[in-house]
Design a protein around this nucleic acid. Structure first.
Lengths: 282, 282
DNA sequence: GCCAGGCCACTGGTCAGACCAGTTGATTTT
DNA sequence: AAAATCAACTGGTCTGACCAGTGGCCTGGC
């Protein structure tokens, strides 16, 4: 379809498009366009075989592709057919998780990347946050403080828009667990307050990756002796950041956030990596 | 394996794991761990059938999953088996594109996210760039300028570490195409100069997603009348940024980069989105 | 009347075997 | 030696079969 200025017609090389691919594209198109809303059902596989006029294995490979993209889910025995899930952020997190888990980048790069994303979240959140956002952050900081001081954390305080995680670790158990959960949620609220869902999703994925890759090794060291102390310092950092956010000082919040992350993870890294991390401190 | 404090043993509900899923996980694990490096080959399908002791359709569905994650590519008739691609940002950009096209997130968020990532790339690159990086950026800016002025771009100038894309669009062809390709590579070099592979990969994914989602609509408008003019302005922006990078002024480069992106894409967005974009200008 | 239980048609998951078109490299022909 | 041929692969697709689930329907007991 491309016409040169010289008047010649250039044909693009036609590469064979697999049948399962065309099937997947057709269905994906229908889903993305909203014609197949989330919650609706696809016809049964054998019915799709009739409609697309291809073999069942082709249909199944197409469904596998859609399923691995998170657009569709199928359950054996379900007489209603595969369920349309609509577009979801899970696939993004999964892709980002693969990237972070691959050995292309080390823990230092991961932490540095989180420093950047968090800092930008703070910058935006300082401008765009609502009163409700601030209240939720404050509540979470208080919860973190409670965990740090060993209080049993009770009561449904900041449960609005809860992620529905059924946490019933009753009583005194799990200071550290509860702390890091509150910490994660704090950062999630900040990222959401930034008004950019993409940024929030990536920040969360990277946060999770950092926890998975690095936190594990640190857990013992912290819980052994200086655990409570470290938590208290972390709470202080969060409260400083919160104050900067409330004051609308995005630059200060960003700088504080970077510094807090550096202080948290730098001791675990070799000097060479630490130097690179410092380059992101600004 | 979880033991409650009360002493009871709690069993986790066992959910059936599909055979193709276990196969895919095993292979993915081998790839992510580096045991199967990029460029290596998987055994032939019929050989995998023997090794995993499952049917061929199961193997094929597993390969489809891996292929749609961008970890693997298979070509009919290839006696060497499927090729391992390693982890790549393609899948990420695909997920970003889907998310952007959906109602969960819009083009404005995508552009804003790119503004953030690019700006941070500049910040880091200003500190860490090598002379060779600068030379490559300069060469690419020159190539962009050449495209903008309609010169036939010839010669292997900055081919070091070339992505191996066989571009033999000889002569006058592809002003716009060549321009955007040079532009993409410019940003790639900057991101790589930042020293953070994770950041570079994400920046590339977001760049690709922006091109895919937004650039398409703009292509006609630009190529129609003010195409060359727009390109010349873009070249000027890139040269300004380049100068700031060379001077080590990361903050200035970041600000320039943000402004250039804003100028590029703001006209295509409704005022409401533009306001949010401006919040990221700083 | 209603509810429990069982039957049955149908689902997705898997397997086996077959055929096709394409690639490749050795073999044969020129 | 170069060119044409061939044979042994590959992945892509189709068919038909079986299995273990699932859910609606029907029936029997209350």
């Amino acid at each position: 379809m491309t016409v040169e200025s010289s008047g010649e017609v250039s044909f693009e090389p036609v590469r064979p498009v697999r049948a399962y691919q065309r099937v997947a594209e057709q269905i994906e198109e229908r889903i993305l366009s909203g014609e197949l809303p989330a919650g609706s059902r696809l016809p049964a596989e054998r019915e799709l075989v009739r409609q697309f006029d291809v073999g069942r294995s082709t249909i199944r490979e197409a469904l596998r592709v859609l399923q691995s993209s998170g657009l569709v889910r199928s359950r054996p025995g379900d007489p209603l057919g595969a369920e349309v899930l609509g577009v979801s952020p899970d696939n993004l997190s999964q892709a980002l998780g693969r990237l972070t888990r691959s050995h292309l980048s080390g823990p230092a790069e991961l932490v540095q990347f989180r420093m950047l994303l968090d800092a930008e979240s703070y910058r935006l959140a300082a401008r765009l946050h609502t009163e409700e956002d601030l209240a939720r952050m404050t509540a979470l900081a208080d919860r973190m403080a409670g965990c740090a001081d060993g209080e049993p954390h009770g009561g449904a305080q900041g449960d609005a828009r809860g992620s529905g995680s059924g946490d019933r670790h009753g009583g005194t158990r799990g200071d550290a667990h509860a702390f890091s959960r509150a910490d994660a949620e704090f950062h999630r609220v900040v990222a959401e307050a930034s008004g950019n869902a993409l940024l929030a999703l990536c920040a969360r994925a990277v946060h999770d990756a950092v926890v998975e890759v690095i936190e594990g090794k640190l857990a013992h060291a912290r819980q052994a002796g200086d655990g409570a102390d470290w938590m208290r310092r972390s709470v202080a950092h969060h409260r400083e950041i919160l104050a900067a956010l409330a004051a609308g000082d995005g630059a200060r919040a960003a700088a504080l956030g970077r510094a807090a992350l550096y202080e948290s993870y730098a001791p675990q890294l070799p000097e060479r990596d630490r130097a690179r991390l410092r380059a992101a401190l600004d």
